[in-house]
C-alpha cells in the first residue's frame, strides 16, 4: 500500500535520459511545465504529450510503473476535475440537481486533467531517471547564484537528498508501527474524524521518535566521515556537460519554441 508511491523515487536502469546531466533535466522539467501552462489549444497538448511519450520511451522506465505512482494522486485529480466541471460558469450542457455542467466547465476540466497528468508524469520522469544525489547536485549548481544572497544552497541540497533517502525507510517504519498497534487492538479505520485523528497518536508519536533517533545517528555518522558542510568538498560525480547535454538543450529549445507557436497561435 505505502510501497506504491513511486513519486520522487529513482528507477534504476541505464538509458539516455539516465545519463543526461541533471541540470538539463531540471531545466527541461521546468520548461515543460511552463509550456503546459502557456499552451491553450489541442495541438499544443498533443505536442506536449508526444514530447513526453518520446522521453518516456528513451528513459526505459516501464510506463506501468509511472501509472502506479499516479494512483496516489488520483484523489487530487478527481477533486480538481469535479471542482472545475461544476463550478465554471458558462453555457449549460447538463443539469444535475442543483449543479450545472457547462461547456466551458467540460473544456476547463479536461484541460486541467490533461495538464495535471502531464505535469506529474513529466516531473516524476525526472525523479525516476535522476538519482537524488544528482538531482540535488543539479539544483545546487543551478542555484549557485543565490549563494551570494547568503542562501545556504549546499545545506538545502544536502537536506533534500537525505530526506529523499529516508522516505522509503520511514514508510516501512510507519507500516510496521501501524501493524504493531493494530495487534494491540488499535483501530485506524472506524469512527468520526476526531476519533480517527486521536487514533493517529499511537502511530505518530513513535514515528517522530524514530525519525529523531535516525536523524541523530545519521548526523553522528556524517560527522565521523568528516562532513563539515560544502566548504572544501570535491565531487565524485562532478557535473560536466557532455555533447549529448548540449544536444538535449537544443532539442529542448526547439520543442519549447514549437509548442508555443503551435499551442498558442494555431486555432483549434
Amino acid at each position: 500500500m505505502l510501497r506504491d508511491i513511486t513519486l520522487g523515487q529513482y528507477y534504476q536502469t541505464d538509458s539516455l535520459l539516465h545519463r543526461l546531466d541533471s541540470r538539463v533535466k531540471l531545466t527541461a522539467t521546468l520548461l515543460f511545465i511552463i509550456s503546459l501552462f502557456l499552451v491553450n489549444n489541442l495541438w499544443g497538448y498533443v505536442m506536449a504529450a508526444a514530447f513526453l511519450a518520446v522521453c518516456i520511451r528513451l528513459s526505459h522506465v516501464p510506463f506501468r510503473y509511472m501509472v502506479k505512482g499516479m494512483r496516489t494522486i488520483l484523489f487530487l485529480l478527481l477533486f480538481a476535475l469535479v471542482f472545475n466541471l461544476f463550478l465554471t460558469p458558462g453555457t449549460p450542457v447538463v443539469r444535475l440537481w442543483k449543479l450545472t455542467v457547462t461547456k466551458e466547465g467540460i473544456r476547463m476540466a479536461a484541460q486541467i486533467a490533461v495538464r495535471l497528468v502531464l505535469l506529474i508524469i513529466g516531473s516524476s520522469l525526472m525523479t525516476l531517471t535522476t538519482t537524488p544525489n544528482h538531482l540535488t547536485d543539479g539544483l545546487e549548481s543551478l542555484m549557485k547564484p543565490l549563494k551570494k544572497l547568503r542562501v545556504p544552497v549546499h545545506e538545502v541540497a544536502m537536506m533534500m537528498s537525505i530526506a529523499l533517502r529516508f522516505i522509503p525507510i520511514l514508510m516501512e517504519e510507519t507500516d510496521k508501527i501501524m501493524k504493531a498497534q493494530i495487534a494491540r487492538g488499535a483501530d485506524f479505520e472506524s469512527g468520526n474524524l476526531i476519533q480517527r485523528a486521536k487514533a493517529m497518536v499511537p502511530l505518530l508519536v513513535p514515528l517522530f521518535i524514530a525519525a529523531f533517533r535516525r536523524a541523530n545517528d545519521l548526523a553522528l555518522a556524517m560527522e565521523a566521515r568528516c562532513y563539515r558542510g560544502g566548504e572544501g568538498r570535491t565531487k565524485m560525480k562532478p557535473l560536466v556537460y557532455q555533447r549529448r547535454d548540449y544536444m538535449a538543450y537544443a532539442v529542448l529549445l526547439l520543442y519549447f519554441a514549437a509548442v508555443i507557436v503551435i499551442g498558442r497561435i494555431l486555432p483549434i
Binding site: S161, I162, R165, I169, R213, R214, L218, A221
Partner: peptide, 12 residues
C-alpha cells in the same frame, strides 16, 4: 556504527 540503516547517506 551499529544500525545499518542510519549511516548510509547515499542513495546508490
Amino acid at each position: 556504527f551499529q544500525n545499518p540503516d542510519n549511516q548510509i547517506i547515499g542513495q546508490v
